[in-house]
């Protein structure tokens, strides 16, 4: 998998948030996006993941040197971020089964159970998400993002709301992802910055 960001610019009305962002990631790679609050880290993550269109510039994904059409890119992406919410009236299992079916056409029960166990949620999967704490919700988001082993994993504020054990889990996820695929992290935490090989500062 190859990700190319070329001359990305973003304006909200007259306010310019991002100016000429360029980078290229291929194969096993990791990138950290840093910048002060309001600098545009989340905006860049949203543009790279296809949730937001850039004002100018281009984001391209290639698989085996073939460009992936924009409407198909979502199949290769996993994202964990504070703005991605799940259905709070449904249980964790119902949410995960829905997203598993939506992304892959079926539900691999063993995979979901294994991920729930890894993230310390086994036994709580039949509870509605509205009864979950913010840390538990963050863990469910990881289960959802990792379910179909995405080739590109975006993590926006990856350890927010997590306790120390949760943070260690996230660091393991990042290490495993960057061994074979691409991981992009938006953060200002020194420990998380050290996880990535490349860095883009949007300040």
């Amino acid at each position: 998998m190859k990700l190319v960001a070329r001359d990305i610019e973003k304006k909200f009305n007259r306010r310019r948030v991002l100016t000429r962002i360029n980078f290229e990631l291929e194969g096993a790679a990791s990138l950290v996006i840093t910048g002060i609050n309001g600098a545009g880290k989340t905006t860049l993550i949203k543009i790279l993941s296809g949730l937001l269109s850039p004002t100018s510039g281009e984001v391209s994904y290639y698989l085996d040197n073939t460009a992936i059409p924009r409407e198909q890119v979502y199949r290769h992406i996993g994202l964990v971020g504070p703005y991605l919410q799940l259905y709070r009236d449904l249980t964790a299992w119902e949410n995960l089964a829905f997203f598993a079916k939506a992304r892959t056409g079926g539900v691999d029960r063993q995979r979901i159970l294994a991920l729930l166990e890894r993230f310390g949620l086994k036994g709580r999967q039949m509870d509605p998400l509205k009864s979950y704490s913010s840390g538990m919700l963050q863990r469910v988001k990881y289960v959802m993002a990792l379910y179909d082993q995405p080739r590109v994993l975006f993590l926006d504020e990856p350890t927010s709301n997590l306790d120390e054990a949760g943070k260690q889990l996230v660091y393991e996820v990042v290490q495993a992802q960057k061994r074979d695929h691409i991981v992009i992290i938006a953060t200002n935490e020194p420990e998380e910055i050290r996880l990535a090989e490349k860095r883009v500062d949007v300040a």
Partner: peptide, 14 residues
């Protein structure tokens, strides 16, 4: 309103 739209955008074709 429940901020699930972006999650849906990442899961399915429009």
């Amino acid at each position: 309103e429940q901020q699930t739209a972006d999650t849906l955008r990442l899961a399915l074709e429009p």
